[in-house]
Design a protein around this nucleic acid. Structure first.
Length: 880
RNA sequence: GCCGGAGUGGCGGAAUGGCAGACGCAACGGUCUUAAACACCGUAGGGCUAUGCCCGUGCGGGUUCGAGUCCCGCCUCCGGCACCA
């Protein structure tokens, strides 16, 4: 009587063994060996670490199981695998809990960590827990602060006053990347624009390298690269210098209506009555070729020159009113491209450097201060937004790129903006040039006169890293009345986060009220000084945790260079696509800075990236608020970790969103039970025992091929085909669902070959040997998915640790049968089937095919025009 | 608006240009059982004048001996960005 499958018992037994024996512990090689490089097959498998907000959810189960399958698979392939885990433990969730309950965020966080840790161990994930990192503990954030100081010394961390995104609900500023369509990434509250002095990382200095180094990545999803590329938003064009005309200058010159006829005006002449006259205002444009079509000029309401410029003009009051209104508008109102254009004439003019024409300056909120220079030349004929504006304010539209008829009215005027290619017209000596050539020549011509230059612009903004919140790493900067802004000396790190009682943010960090924290002495002069009350964005913590794993317990360095250079870059990183920009771009930036500082020897942290899909339930993303959460613990309790792990990967492709089906896991559970039963039977029957004379822990040599019956040969072929498929599915394609399907097929064949429960047909010794081969392979292929059951079966076989067992190898002799079945088509439709030797010559295959009754019927009386043979698969006879 | 991705049975899904629907769920029939559960065996895209034939991978064209797969034009859904000059 075979033992019944009891996952609870088996799984807790093996989890205890793994914990006790530290099975998954991986020591760093000696310094000497590490310095020899990654030669020893060192492989770093990493999943994005969890944010401990309570307990693990199905998304975590999927993420960590996937990583575990790959880690175990690589291990069996003989690699030295690093597979660590940690917790992204600072952050707003715990702090908001603290505000509600008064409980210290550290207490809440440590409890959540303990829960998730227990869950991960209960899932049987092969993690080296000796390398665990927790970002909210001083031994970790000491080094976050230390890294901040390295950035600071390099001028890459700096303070500036700038318009920033403020979330009124979270009571803190946010980075651009944390604003999703004008709302806070965390709480979806609409953000306000506020002008504040804040800390930034100079990520814009790295924009070019962040783009270039995409080519250093081996295998990243194209869409993630595209998202980052769009976010960085590089565009090439020119900076063109316009000069502010003196008040009233426009009356002395011709109107700027026709470009070619314009004459140079008095724009550049200093005017004692108007100190601003002649001021240079630079614009960035991707279309310098359309400069002759610039009929007006627009500045953002926030532009620093605007206030002064409108002073004393007739429209001063209108301008001030408009600016007030524009600044008061919400981000969403402001950025709605659909809304009608608004703006106001400033009463002033600028001189177009290409022809000296004076064109009116408007203030309009469709020009943004945070892109380019906050001022644009407006070319209504060839820009849709400028066209809308010109229409509304009745400004001239001059065609300067020959436009197709459908863009024009019958009288030749522009009906809508034409942004496509064409030849220049109305553009003086540039007439006739094609667009791209004109872009170059116009810029060069102006450059010679010092009025323009080629320029590159990015959408990417510097990373705003300070937060007016409590639960984060304090910024290690001190403000002294005498010495100003002073970096905390490294020997004084960490700056410990003090305990406080009132976590409520009040527009500034709760730390600002903690006097014993705030009041300190200046490390330079010893005089009274105050600390920075802000904490760091949690994305700073997560931008380097993957480095810390390499030498997690070192307390004298953030990470050991030899160790990071040995293990990194990460060979396989796995996580949700929601981090496509935020975490993944910040980490890439950090890595490049650390490379420049000589702290790491590589410029990209993650060589291969896999982004998993989400698990939906009842048609929607699982969430507490929708009440459609499926609890992993319940399924572990009911079916065992092995079943849950397998099912979560079996549902569908790992990279796509999939729907959880309540009955689905039962099917996988049944499958696992069948594997258990068939394996136990084979083991108890002694088929899997090591025969006398064979190497310990092996099945001994296979019988000669000639001794095998057709059925035995078929099972052997199925076994090796399955090895081939599963190896490729796990190792190359991440198709865990089809890997499992293939293993299920093998199991089905074993069940069929073995016969019924009462004895079965395994009558011959060669048959038993082939069955043993199949069962042993089944267990080994399944180990990454169901490690507990496989460990138990392995032990029952009398073998040593399956964790250390090698991955099964394909024997190419057994990848196909001698005789294959081929489909026979006539004109592309299957009409018969043919059993024939796999090595049969094409001519013989065709002859045999044409003799089949189902084929003769369709070929008779027709002319054969073509015959196609796909070896081992199909024949197509084309007739007329 | 721009840039990605996806549309295949009742459901989740499978298929280097080569037999569409592997594998699993649900369903149905049977064996076992006093009975049920479990387990096991079997049936299963649709249609028809059924030993056979026709139709079928969102829609319409095309390339090819052969298209779920490649090309062109649409439709729908999902994701990202969005007055980016």
């Amino acid at each position: 009587m075979a033992r019944s499958y009891n996952p609870e018992e088996i799984e807790t037994k093996w989890q205890a063994v793994w914990a006790r024996e530290k099975t998954f512990y991986v020591a760093n090689p000696t310094l000497q060996d590490m310095q020899k490089g990654k030669a020893g097959g060192a492989t770093y498998i990493l999943e994005m670490f969890p944010y401990p907000s309570g307990s693990a959810h199905m998304g975590h189960v999927k993420n960590y199981t996937m990583g575990d399958v790959i880690a175990r698979f690589r291990r069996h392939q003989g690699r030295l695998v690093l597979h660590p885990m940690g917790y992204d433990a600072f952050g707003l969730n715990s702090e908001n809990v603290a505000i509600q309950t008064g409980e210290h965020p550290a207490v809440f966080t440590e409890r959540a960590i303990a829960t998730i840790n227990r869950q991960l161990r209960r899932l049987g994930v092969a993690i080296d827990w000796d390398r665990e990192v927790v970002t909210c503990r001083p031994e970790y954030y000491k080094w976050t602060q230390w890294l901040f100081l390295q950035f600071y010394k390099k001028g890459l961390a700096f303070r500036k006053e700038a318009p920033v995104n403020w979330c009124p609900s979270c009571q803190t500023v946010l980075a651009n990347e944390q604003v999703i369509q004008g709302t806070c990434e965390r709480c979806s509250t609409e953000v306000d624009a506020k002008k504040l002095e804040q800390w930034f990382f100079r990520i814009t200095d790295y924009a070019e390298r962040l783009l270039e180094d995409f080519n250093k990545l081996e295998n990243w999803p194209e869409r993630v690269i595209t998202m980052q590329r769009n976010w960085i938003g590089r565009s090439t064009g020119s900076d063109v210098i316009f000069r502010l005309a003196a008040k009233g200058a426009e009356h002395g010159s011709s109107a700027p209506a026709t470009a070619d006829s314009a004459v140079s005006a008095a724009g550049g002449v200093a005017d004692p009555l108007d100190p601003l006259a002649g001021t240079e205002i630079t614009v960035f444009t991707t279309r310098p070729d359309t400069l002759f079509g610039a009929t007006f000029f627009v500045m953002a309401p926030e532009h620093p020159l605007v206030e002064e410029m409108v002073c004393g003009t007739e429209t001063e009051e209108d301008c001030r009113r408009y600016i007030r209104q524009a600044m008061g508008a919400s981000y969403i109102e402001r950025s709605n491209a659909e809304k009608e254009k608004t703006g106001v004439f400033t009463g002033r003019y600028v001189e177009n450097p290409i022809n000296g024409a004076l064109i009116p300056i408007y203030i309009a909120d469709y020009v943004m201060m945070d892109y380019g220079t906050g001022a644009i030349m407006a070319v209504p004929a060839h820009d849709e937004r400028d066209f809308d504006f010109a229409l509304k304010f009745n400004l001239p539209v001059i065609e300067v790129i020959s436009s197709p008829e459908e863009f024009k009215n019958p009288d030749g005027s522009m009906k809508e903006a034409y942004v496509g290619d064409g030849l220049l017209v109305n553009s003086s000596h540039f007439n006739g040039l094609p667009k791209t050539e004109a872009i170059r020549q116009v810029t060069e011509w102006l450059k010679e006169q010092g009025k323009a230059d080629f320029a590159v612009n990015y959408k990417l903004r510097d990373w705003l890293l300070s937060r007016q919140r409590y639960w984060g790493a304090p910024i290690p900067i001190i403000y002294c009345e005498k010495c100003g802004q002073v970096a905390v000396p490294e020997k004084d790190l960490p700056i410990l986060l003090p305990d406080i009682t009132d976590y409520q943010p009040k527009g500034k960090s709760p730390l600002a009220a903690a006097e014993h924290f705030m009041n300190t002495t200046c490390p330079t002069c010893g005089g009274p000084a105050t600390r920075d009350p802000d904490t760091m964005d949690t994305f700073v913590d997560s931008s380097w945790y993957f480095l810390r794993y390499a030498s997690a317990r070192r307390d004298d360095v953030a990470f050991e260079k030899a160790a990071v250079d040995y293990w990194l870059p990460v060979d396989q990183y796995i996580g949700g696509v929601e981090h496509a920009i935020l975490h993944l771009m910040y980490s890439r930036f950090f890595c490049k800075v650390l490379y420049d500082l000589g702290l790491v020897g590589f410029e990209e942290p993650f060589k291969n990236l896999f982004t998993q899909g989400m698990i939906h339930y009842k048609g929607a993303k699982m969430s507490k608020s929708k009440g459609n959460v499926v609890n992993p613990d319940e399924h572990v309790a009911k079916y065992g970790a092995d079943s849950l792990r397998s099912y979560i990967l079996f549902i569908g492709p790992a990279e796509s969103d999939v729907e959880w089906q309540d009955k689905g896991i039962e099917g996988v559970y049944r499958f696992i039970n069948r594997v258990w039963r068939v394996s136990c039977e084979a083991i108890e029957a002694g088929w899997l025992a090591t025969p006398a004379g064979a190497t310990q822990g092996t099945l001994g040599p296979l019988p000669e091929e000639a001794e095998l019956t057709a059925a035995e040969k078929a099972l052997l072929v199925k076994t090796h085909q399955t090895i081939e498929k599963v190896t490729a599915d796990i190792g190359e394609r991440f198709h865990f669902n089809t890997a499992l399907a293939a293993i299920m097929e093998l199991n089905n064949e074993i069940v069929a070959a073995r016969g019924g429960d009462d004895g079965g047909p395994a009558a011959t010794s060669s048959g038993r040997r082939v069955l043993a081969e199949a069962v042993e392979t089944l267990i080994r292929l399944l180990e990454p998915f169901t490690p507990h059951m496989c460990a138990e079966l392995w032990e029952m076989m009398g073998r040593k640790s399956i964790w250390d067992a090698p991955w099964p190898e394909v024997d190419s002799r057994f990848l196909s049968l001698e005789t294959v079945e081929m489909a026979v088509q006539v004109n592309g439709k299957v009409r018969d089937r043919l059993m024939i030797s796999k090595d049969a010559a094409a001519a013989d295959v065709i002859a045999a095919a044409k003799a089949l009754p189902g084929v003769v019927k369709y070929v008779e009386g027709k002319t054969v025009v073509k015959e196609i043979v796909v070896p081992g698969k199909l024949v197509n006879v084309v007739v007329k």
